[in-house]
Simulated scan of single mutants.
Amino acid sequence: MLSNTRNALGLALLLALGGAAPMPAFAQAPTADTQRLSEQWDEKRATTLLDRAVAHIEAKGKDGVTDFSRQGSFVDGDLYVYALADDGRFLASGGSSAALIGSKVTEQTDAGGKAFFREILDLAAAKGSGRVEYRWLNPVQNREEPKVTLFRKVGDVIVAVGFYSPRASAAQARDLLDRAAEALAADASVALADFQRIGGKFTQDDLYVLVVNMEDGRFLAHGASPALIGRNGHDLRDPKGKAVITDMINIARRKGAGELDYVWRNPTTAKVESKHTYFRAVDGKLVGVGYYTR
């Protein structure tokens, strides 16, 4: 239901921006562009809600934060407003974080040990506003997912709105590919081992690295499915019959690098989803990183 809602919202944003796309194609075959529009729409909603909450505090003062803990104009679907005092006390929330009200959250950390509230407080003191990324429990999915919080300081109150971003972005995939290619060129044996390390620096949410020997098509590394190592990638097909590895190798031989759309199992959701992978040739090896667009 949530994915369908986001798809519809993404289409509305596309039309509002002056684009044109037939609804059936959008609904049935999400692409990198539609995923990006969905993320832009979530951030636009969060910004609009934050604007409204800031105006409320400017008009009513610090006492106005109690209104954020009520269901109403400061809740928009899965988005809600929360507020902190500049000394780290949690003042109000319209969502699951209401359990923190009254607590001092300066040292509160996310699943990865990041003291994100402290980061919000420090940035608010230094710049007056900003954004912070961390991991938080998504009650809809019942799992911890990446979240982005936008915030502004109004007097001694910090007003914030967060939104979940469970899918890695195209920029994150390209960045990981750059780092993986550099590591592979520097020391292939060390890099291949690092690519397989669960929770290591080459796995990030639903992102991971794959490496294939371009001469024989055999997998040398696969951050999500180690069982593929040694298997001939030319034999591999996605659920729609696309020869994914063969296509990547052919493009890399002709151009040195490229990108490909196909469908694949997402290790974080255990579902088959649309995927967009960036890849390049490095010393006779194909190295790739893809992100899931749905």
Rank of each mutant, 00 (worst) to 15 (best):
V211D: 11
Q172I: 09
F163L: 12
F163T: 11
G162C: 14
V209R: 07
F163P: 07
Y164F: 01
S169R: 14
V190K: 01
S189P: 05
D206S: 02
A181V: 04
V212M: 02
D194A: 13
Y164G: 02
Q196D: 14
E215V: 09
N213I: 03
F219E: 14
A191D: 06
Q204G: 04
R197A: 15
F219W: 15
A221Q: 09
F163V: 06
T203A: 00
A171M: 15
L220E: 12
Y208T: 06
G217T: 14
L192C: 02
F163K: 10
L184Q: 01
A180F: 02
L192G: 08
P166F: 04
A221T: 02
L184P: 13
R197G: 12
Y164R: 05
D175N: 07
L192K: 03
E215Q: 14
R179M: 01
A221S: 14
Q196T: 04
R179Q: 03
E182F: 09
G199T: 08
F219H: 15
S165T: 10
A193K: 12
Y208A: 03
L184W: 09
A221L: 01
Q172S: 12
T203L: 06
Q172E: 15
D175E: 11
A171F: 15
D205I: 02
T203G: 04
A186S: 05
A170F: 13
Y208W: 07
A188L: 08
H222G: 02
P166W: 00
A221E: 14
H222F: 08
L177R: 03
A181H: 04
D178K: 00
L184K: 09
A183C: 13
L207C: 00
V211E: 00
Q204V: 06
A173P: 11
K201A: 11
Q196W: 02
V211G: 13
S165D: 05
D187G: 02
L220A: 03
L177V: 05
N213L: 07
F219Q: 14
A180K: 03
D194R: 10
F195G: 09
L192N: 10
A181P: 05
Q204T: 06
V211R: 06
K201E: 14
A180I: 00
R167M: 08
S165P: 03
V212K: 03
A193C: 04
L177S: 04
H222C: 08
Q172K: 08
V212P: 05
M214I: 14
S189T: 02
L192M: 07
M214T: 15
A183G: 13
A171R: 15
A170P: 12
L177I: 07
L207I: 07
A168G: 13
E215C: 13
Y208Q: 07
A193N: 12
Y164P: 08
D187R: 07
G217R: 12
A168L: 11
A168R: 15
L176A: 00
L220R: 10
R174Q: 15
Y208L: 00
F202V: 04
Y164D: 06
V211K: 07
R174C: 11
A183D: 11
A186Y: 11
A186T: 09
G199N: 01
D216E: 13
A185M: 11
K201M: 12
E182Q: 13
L207F: 01
L176G: 05
F202G: 01
S169F: 15
D205R: 05
S189N: 10
N213W: 01
A185D: 12
A168T: 06
F163W: 11
A180V: 04
